[in-house]
Amino acid sequence: MHAPRLHWKRGRQEEGPGVHRTLEWIGRNDAGEAIARVVRILGPVWSGWRTYRAVALDDEAKVVELRPSRPDGADWLACVGGQVVGRAPVPLQAVRAAEAALGGD
């Protein structure tokens, strides 16, 4: 079994009528510093004047458009230091991708 090296906690949530889902998981080191993020890919999103096929929140919770589009079979992005280091269909696999990018197992 893969044991996570960082301390992962829920980050931003999406709340609404009939909707409750985690939009990101934040990985902190033993000192409590946010080292990595695993972010849910959203979309398509209608902004009022155009449709974004795939977007995600950056670390300041700004919506970032993904180009060219949603990666095939991936619903989560693994991010370290503001860079995307991996994509995965489920968050745990994205967590492993982020930890691997940090030089772990």
């Binding site: 079994m1 893969h2 044991a3 996570p4 301390h7 992962w8 906690k9 829920r10 968050p91 745990l92």
Partner: peptide, 25 residues
Amino acid sequence: YRQLLLDTALSVDDAAMEEYFDKGD
């Protein structure tokens, strides 16, 4: 395959994910 099971199944439940992050299982 157990890892695949955990990866997939736990993704539907945030509390289960946190339990996994805390204990490794």
